[in-house]
Design a protein around this nucleic acid. Structure first.
Lengths: 191, 191, 191, 191
DNA sequence: CATGAATGAGTATTCATTCAT
DNA sequence: TATGAATGAATACTCATTCAT
């Protein structure tokens, strides 16, 4: 008796998700060239050939992971936050709380941030995180709560630090992690 | 007129230096696994085989580059600075001035910082930069010029940002670079 | 009404026949190495696994197809023809008529010829077609209707041409097909 | 001291020629799918990697071999022959002599013919051999020396037989080879 | 029986390293 | 020394075969 169409679809979905999920971390840690399919498949817990059922090549898998890295990093949440009718200082605090929490609790989030930023460095990917943050910064500068300076530069600085700790999280189990307050201070005036 | 013996030695030095200098940048950008000897040699402008006259292996070359990355990054300068009998705030400003200048003017410096930091992330290399900076931070906290908080964490934060902009410098020709004042502010109290 | 036992057997037969029939063409066109089970099964319209219910391996399927290729090519018919008490010239004409008709109308026949001949080239399979034809040739040479020359060589030539057009039939839908008269002429004296 | 530019060029040329020459036979015998790079390289007497210095992929090598197969098969010679101011019958005899001689003496020639014909079957390659032969056939039909019938069909028949014996030559060391006279008779009227 | 996702041995391709020139 | 063609071990990818459903 043949497997039902739906069940097959489900299995395919599950396996592809498993591959993507486990690969995000692996690629974020080891980079493209540093990732061997043989080791990656062992890490995922499947046969090498299985990867090639779902992805045409190593590059194809990497591209997919790259392209979804911003989803992993939770773009939607930030856009919503930016749109709330509250002072910028509060937005920055909320955003920083959220980011630090995710960096601490969710390795996948860190991997997403790392890949997303690397993509930006390589001139690909859209810098929507930065744009959203720039808006908040300009609002805060009008309100007098955020330090003066080029909004774009400050935004890059802020996200750069997030990237920094995302990478650190991927490499070390070190508990010396930045606090939400430290992160907020990058943008907020003292006092 | 020197003997050919000496001249030979000179040529050796020159070629080896050329390899090291060009490789620092290449490895810093592409990582160990992402660097192909065939491409590296093309980038240097020599034959593949020539690299193996001066270095036993790719790893050997990488190790050499790693080992000189802290020299490139100018450790001595910092130690000297830390030892001066001046207020910590002034040390931080001087150090930041120096670092920003180097990041802007010297791609090799940026590469050195990038490699040095990557080594630290991987748990190798000695964190002497951080230690030296920690001392300055503690001094500044006593003097009331540096923000409170764990000195080690602050030091890591400071150097993390330096790394951030070193990497940015390697990938982009973007002029949006942090200023010395921005860098100092990471440690210094506002006002 | 037959028992389900019998019906099952019937279904088995049907599926096996379907596989064989469709595979003959596929193998004849692409060869053993050039035939992928994944593509073959798609071409047949069944799942990959189904093939392995009926055949132990790809080789096993190929062997079966090979072994029936001479049946497909209609050996019996030829033996019967050779035994008839008529002049050789007439036998050659009848045989040529029959072969050309089959080549034109039945792709399976062409595939059978192609596989049978490939097997001979590889030194396997029994050359009974050739033997039968040799007998006819010798009879014709005595009767003065068939050109002189080594009977074996002439027989190989004749069947070689049949192979030629069998292959052509498999690859092209070209209507430029040899006629029965052309085929006969290979053996028969002009006039 | 570096190798001289010319010497390097020479070596490259030689190696590439060696690969092509040995591969023609191998591919002609085993087909594309039936040829393993590991075995081919052993047969050539070089390392697997060497092939990839000169050809981007197995397909690339095959394509090159395919594309030069008509050169191997000696197109120029035939064109010259067709242009001579002699009776068609004589041309056919000369051409047949030449082809049989080549088939007997030169395995590479046989391989070239086999590949050239396979290319035609697959609808690629230009059928210039056929065209040239058609002209001779038409001339002969006017002169009364060549049998009547569609020139194109006769030409295809003639070259089909050449292909037949080329393939036979590749597979068997069998001495039962067609004679030049047999080959000529395909086109020439008896007597 | 039939299915097609998963497997892993087998094959193609790459790349650090060697070596004759 | 310097070169770059050649090497072959390591790595990417394919495909015949299996097996849970």
């Amino acid at each position: 008796m043949p497997k039902s169409q739906e069940r097959c679809q489900e299995i395919r979905e599950e396996t592809k998700n498993l591959i993507v999920k486990k690969s995000v971390l692996y690629f974020a840690k080891n980079g493209f060239a540093g990732t061997k399919i043989s080791e990656l498949s062992k890490h995922i817990g499947i046969a090498q050939g299985t990867i090639y059922i779902y992805f045409k090549s190593k590059e194809d898998l990497y591209a997919e992971i790259f392209s979804i890295s911003d989803k992993i990093a939770g773009n939607d949440k930030l856009n919503m936050l930016a749109g709330l009718p509250v002072p910028a200082a509060q937005k920055v605090k909320k955003m920083s709380d959220y980011l630090i929490k995710c960096l601490n609790d969710d390795e996948m989030f860190s991997a997403g941030i790392a890949l997303y930023t690397q993509r930006l460095l390589e001139g690909e990917g859209d810098p929507s995180f930065y744009r959203t943050t720039e808006k908040i910064i300009r609002q805060g500068q009008k309100e007098g709560s955020i330090i003066s300076g080029n909004a774009r530069k400050l935004s890059e600085f802020y996200w750069g630090v997030v990237y920094l700790y995302a990478v650190k999280r991927l490499y070390t189990s070190d508990s010396v992690m930045i606090s939400s307050k430290d992160l907020s201070r990058i943008l907020l005036e003292d006092k």
